[in-house]
Write a protein that binds this DNA or RNA. Structure first.
Length: 592
RNA sequence: GGAGGUAUGGUGUAGUGGAUAGCAUCAGGGAUUUCGAAUCCCUGGACCCCGGUUCGAGUCCGGGUACCUCCGCCA
């Protein structure tokens, strides 16, 4: 609780100095109390014992006795060598009422901040529909973008389009050379396309890609095919405009289909940058010429070139190849050119990458350092598996995001329909779409990115307990209260702006809510700066829970009479929930 | 074989060197003539193993074990 800390530190400074503590590091020992009942902040006094020649119990007591009283401090107690300080709930209420805890756009209180942040995420190869595994990148990345915006930062969300190279080459070849019948014949025995996605290009065209993958290994003329694909790929890597155009015609509809899926999840991008740009504009060849002058530059027998990063401390295989024997560039080379370009347009760079890219990212980072460039921050995440094992399109072991979202919507629809038979079909559809997509996002975002994750239908579709609909429900209930007040003929604006006495004694649920609201900004700050969105997801869950406790203990509207303070607090909590939900991509519907 | 990551109730997970390890699910019990029961309350149950550092270790260090990822002139 940063706001309490700011009040407390000068006071404690004085007391500690007066009793003879010289260790200036005590500030880092002032921690959030583990025992919520004991206090908000605690100072363990064990380290002072040696210096002062007294027991920690005595020291804690002595500090408690000599601590100056302050409006912010509610209770001070010394227990078992710990000094516990509890905030005065009335002071917390004042902080909340004075807007100290408001965050985000809707509150018009952005931190002054001129840094430009570029977040690159997703950047999936445009060769097939999103499955749940690939979507973790998009959900993490988009949530990070949203949280930065909530925090007041200037963010650009970017998708790096892999518009050249073998995967797109295979897709282009397949679309040109294979007929629908041949594709289906090749894929016989594999799962057929879900009828629902007929006409959606990512689902349609991936079958051409899959058929080609199998034909490349099995058909009698596979050497010829391989040569043909190889010719196109190399032409693309040399910037052949005709080939690049053919590639684009092949992948663009696929990419559009993929973006449609992301859109449904509330995920958007500000800019798309094509990989080929760095080949056609000459950046890549200039870069490769520059590498030649490096002392760690080396050449293989066939003329391929590399940098020996072993000399810079890389372990394992130390040669980092940037150019093939035929003179064309490699993916990583283009990635470096891309990073140099990105650094020209931002102050901070964040990439969201799967853990399989760790070595690659390290090589790129070391090379950027070699070039005198800064290295990006990277948010790595672990893969999503299925209970049957690794997700694999080839083995048919895959859950498509489109299917998951359909199912989520259908199940949410069943719940809404049951609870509210009075709602119109349109309303049910809208609510269940919001609840379904939000539940899917939240289920993925609430887990720490570096934790392996096994996808389970029943968890992804859970609408109770620690889920998005749980949060949405608390928010909807707060909205409902406000509507009830209007129905009772109360002027909301007047009530919101009228000044009111701060209560001097409060029920437990109200104190809970105030405390949660007062750490909200602290948690957001940590989630953003440490790139750990799940911390904020858990905080929002806590906020919803606290609001429920407040609702339980405090009446806002009773017998037509409005409790003004309770109403104001409820409205502030409602707004905080709403903006926080937006920060996580949860849709804040007002009724459900 | 080398490099990186992870290990917490039955299950899924949170946890800033600090006290009685939090949440959800699950199992069992209870709460509504009152602002929305997708709610709330009560009970049950966990820090992989062995050492070390420390006044104090789930957390830091070393060594095991298990699982995941990488070690392409692929992207």
């Amino acid at each position: 609780m940063q706001m309490l800390r700011e009040v407390l530190e000068p006071l404690l400074d004085e007391v500690l100095m007066s009793i003879g503590v010289t260790n200036a590091h005590w500030r880092s020992m002032l921690v959030r109390s583990r025992e919520h009942d004991q206090g908000d902040l605690s100072l363990p006094c064990f380290p002072f014992a040696k210096e002062l020649g007294k027991s920690p119990i005595e020291i804690a007591q002595q500090i408690a006795d000599s601590l100056e009283s302050h409006f912010a401090i509610g209770e001070v107690n010394a227990v078992a060598g710990y000094l516990n300080i509890k905030a005065n709930p009335t002071w917390l209420a004042q902080q909340v009422m004075d807007d100290a805890v408001r965050i985000g756009d809707a509150f018009g209180k952005k931190p002054a901040n001129n840094t430009h942040i570029l977040i690159e995420h997703t950047s999936a190869n445009p060769n097939g529909p999103f499955h749940v595994g690939r979507a973790r990148n998009a959900i993490l990345g988009d949530t990070l973008v949203r949280l930065h915006r909530l925090y007041g930062n200037n963010v650009r969300a970017e998708y790096y389009v892999d518009d050249m190279g073998k995967q797109v080459g295979v897709l282009a070849w397949a679309l040109e050379h294979l007929g629908k019948e041949e594709v289906e014949r090749t894929l016989v025995g594999r799962e057929s396309i879900n009828e629902k996605w007929q006409g959606k290009a990512d689902h349609e065209r991936v079958r051409w890609y899959q058929a080609a993958q199998s034909i490349r290994q099995e058909r009698s003329d596979k050497e010829d095919i391989e040569a043909e694909i190889g010719r196109m790929v190399h032409a693309s890597e040399h910037g052949d405009e005709e080939v690049l155009q053919a590639f684009e015609n092949a992948y663009q509809p696929v990419l559009d289909g993929m973006l449609e899926t992301l859109k449904r999840l509330g995920i958007d991008f500000d800019t798309f940058t094509k990989e080929s740009m760095f080949v056609t504009n000459g950046d890549v060849s200039k870069l490769m010429e520059k590498f030649k002058t490096f002392e760690i530059h080396g050449t293989a027998d066939n003329g391929a070139e590399f940098l020996d990063l072993g000399a810079r401390g890389l372990k394992g295989k130390t040669e980092f190849f940037f150019r093939r024997g035929d003179g064309s560039s490699l993916y990583a080379t283009r990635d470096i050119a891309y990073h140099i370009w990105k650094w020209k347009q931002c102050d901070q760079l964040i990439n969201v990458l799967g853990e399989d890219h760790k070595l690659q990212a390290k090589q790129v980072g070391m090379t950027l350092t070699e070039l005198g460039e800064k290295i990006p921050d990277v948010l790595f995440y672990s893969f999503i598996k299925l209970p049957e094992g690794k997700m694999s399109t080839r083995k048919g072991n895959v859950v498509y995001m489109d299917d998951l979202l359909e199912e989520a919507q259908a199940q949410a629809s069943a719940v809404v329909g049951e609870i509210h038979p009075d709602y119109s079909p349109e309303m049910v559809a809208e609510i269940s779409e919001a609840a379904g997509t939000s539940a899917v996002r939240f289920n993925i975002i609430k887990v720490s990115p570096d934790k392996g994750f096994t996808f389970r239908w029943e968890e992804a579709l859970a609408f109770e307990g620690g889920s998005a609909p749980f949060i949405m429900y608390s928010h909807a209930r707060a909205c409902s209260i406000a509507r009830k007040c209007v129905a009772a003929g109360i002027d909301l604006d007047a009530a919101a702006n009228s000044s009111t006495e701060l209560p001097s004694s409060m029920p437990k649920g109200m104190v809970e809510l105030l405390r949660t609201m007062c750490v909200h900004q602290d948690v957001l700050s940590k989630a953003v700066n440490d790139r750990r969105p799940h911390l904020f997801a858990n905080q929002l869950l806590q906020l919803a829970t606290s609001f429920n406790a407040f609702y339980r203990d405090c009446m806002i509207l009773q017998d037509g009479e409005l409790n003004v303070f309770n109403f104001q607090l409820s409205e502030l909590a409602r707004n905080l929930m709403r903006t926080s939900m937006q920060g996580l991509g949860i849709v804040p519907v007002e009724q459900m």
